[in-house]
Computed example of a mutant assay.
Amino acid sequence: MNERAIGFAPEYTPDTRVLILGSLPGVASLRAGQYYAHPRNAFWPVMSALTGHDLVGKPYAERLALLKASGFGLWDVLASAERSGSLDAAIRSPEAADLVGLVNRLPCLETIAFNGAKSARIGRRFLAGHTRARLVDLPSSSPAHARPLAEKIEGWRSRLQGSD
């Protein structure tokens, strides 16, 4: 039997311009109580490159503070789901997060970026017609999607800047 994984609260400020949405935290993240806690997940190295801050070398609370000060917010498209392991393909009985509710609380929001295909599939379905923000699909930062870090950084940078 699969355990029910419960996601985290959103991380944002009223000044959030870019909201990054994953699918649901993986096992390492849930155990640590931190977004993108798996040591091989490229999220923090990618965001270090994009923000100009060494987020990887900082304590988690400081990472979040610098990320938010740079105009980024974090959440997941799912509030919970049954899942064995961390792979998105193993997600069963998903419960959607209140994406529309959060988006409506972000007056400066310009871009909603989906970290990976599962996030994009679910998030686009729930946000269609409910936001004027630009919707962007990002290459997954997950270690299950083996691409060189430089390629992930460039993929995120080009899509977030609007030059696919």
Rank of each mutant, 00 (worst) to 15 (best):
L78I: 15
R121V: 14
E110W: 14
R92H: 07
N115Q: 04
A144E: 05
S86L: 10
I112M: 01
N115L: 09
F114I: 06
A113K: 04
P107W: 09
R124T: 12
D88E: 12
S93F: 15
T131G: 04
V77G: 00
T131D: 01
L109S: 07
S86R: 11
A96Q: 13
K118G: 03
D137F: 06
D98S: 12
L135Q: 15
P107Y: 07
W75P: 02
D88T: 06
L109R: 08
L109E: 07
S140C: 12
A79P: 10
A144I: 00
S86M: 11
R132D: 09
A97I: 04
E82V: 07
G116R: 02
L109D: 10
D137C: 08
H130V: 13
N104I: 00
A113D: 03
G85H: 07
N115F: 05
S140D: 09
S86W: 02
A89L: 04
V77H: 00
L135S: 10
D137Y: 03
A97T: 10
I112F: 01
R92Y: 08
G116V: 01
W75D: 02
I122G: 01
N104K: 12
R105H: 10
E95R: 13
R83D: 14
F126C: 10
L127N: 07
E95F: 05
A96G: 13
A79R: 13
G85N: 12
F126Y: 15
G123E: 00
D88V: 04
A79Q: 14
F114N: 00
V100S: 08
V103Y: 05
R121Q: 14
A90E: 13
E95V: 14
G116F: 09
A89H: 09
E110V: 04
C108G: 02
D137M: 08
R125G: 11
A81L: 04
G85T: 15
D98N: 14
R134L: 02
C108K: 13
L127A: 08
V77M: 02
R124D: 01
V136A: 02
P139T: 08
A97G: 05
A117V: 13
P139E: 07
